[in-house]
Nucleic acid binder design. Structure first.
Lengths: 187, 187
DNA sequence: AACAGACTACCTACCACAAGGTAGGTAGTC
DNA sequence: GACTACCTACCTTGTGGTAGGTAGTCTGTT
């Protein structure tokens, strides 16, 4: 792989945030696992908030790419949602929480910039889900039911929530992507 | 109200844990809002872990009482689950996360005792939900579908997940307790 | 009724250490 | 000569936690 120091820092710090949280990981931890001296981190990221921001921004960018790829590979709305479901589960199988969820948990202890980023991250995911739901309804794949906004909210809740429960109980996720059908078909 | 110092400490610390997380609140914060000197806290709770443990244990006891009361006030399984749903939402309307979710987020940074308590807390909730689901199936209120265990998992996921999204986006919860019907009716 | 001893609930003063961050330097590269 | 990517040495602040003291209360004995 041989990724540069900066990328190694972001990658390692992301893993720490998704397992221990933002407050509970330190530059000292990070320095040790990356194999660099603590103050050298400041060369790449002057403050911890800078590092946090970089992590979230790169993560959001990755999710945006995922969304684009899903749209490219799947035509139907249900197929797209199922693809997202599998993607979410795969990422939590790695023994980590979704980043947005982890951030949300300590929201009011975060620097303001990170709070806003977290908020925007959730909005972005909800907006995409809502658009997919809308499309599914227009194509007649499933009924409007309580509307695209609510269906989007319910699906994202389930995705986030199941990651947390799996993470905390170390049990394998018992659900599979048929759950998407259930939510979407609600009328 | 006039609650004793010990109870004030537990109550305040619980609120801090459910908004900032375990790592991000300090004895200094706590001392200030309770109106006591920092080292006096050690008189009631020798270590931070002791305090954390007390909080979670009392919280679990409260949830256990809630479960008992729900069973007493509602006969049907669906009615019981809907009651739980409303209870969950009411507690997150106060601008706080469910305690178990907040703990889960920083799981691997917690002292071992708290990790185990968190794990047990989730198991306890899942077990209760599973029993209620089982009962609903036996009474013919809804189909077995994917089974009581999976339905319990899905419902708890939704409960936890929606709390997080609400908390992070500050939007009002768009769902209502009809969502319980949807999950339960899955076949 | 009086008083000793123990106990409770706090206090001030302090400690070791770990946090994020800074100053200033060096070796290599463009 | 400037820039990048690191280094050592150090600083300030905040952390959980300790030592030891004091004022009040509760209890048992004389």
């Amino acid at each position: 792989m041989a990724l540069g120091t900066r990328d190694a820092l972001v990658q390692t710090a992301e893993a720490l945030m998704r397992t221990k949280g933002y407050a509970a990981f330190s530059y000292a931890d990070l320095a040790e696992t990356v194999g660099i001296r603590k103050p050298s981190i400041h060369h790449h990221f002057p403050t911890k908030e800078d590092l946090g921001t970089a992590i979230v921004e790169e993560y959001i960018e990755r999710v945006r790419d995922d969304f684009a790829q899903i749209e490219q590979q799947h035509e139907g709305a249900v197929a797209r949602l199922e693809a997202l479901f599998r993607l979410f589960r795969a990422s939590s199988d790695g023994g980590m929480l979704p980043l947005c969820g982890a951030l949300a948990a300590e929201m009011s202890a975060l620097p303001l910039g990170l709070q806003q980023l977290t908020h925007r991250f959730f909005d972005m995911q909800l907006k995409w889900l809502e658009a997919v739901m809308e499309r599914g309804m227009e194509r007649g794949e499933f009924p409007r039911g309580s509307g695209p906004k609510q269906k989007a909210f319910v699906l994202l809740s389930l995705l986030e929530g199941s990651s947390f429960i799996n993470w905390a109980t170390k049990a394998g996720d018992p659900t599979d992507d048929r759950i998407v059908q259930l939510i979407v078909q609600e009328s």
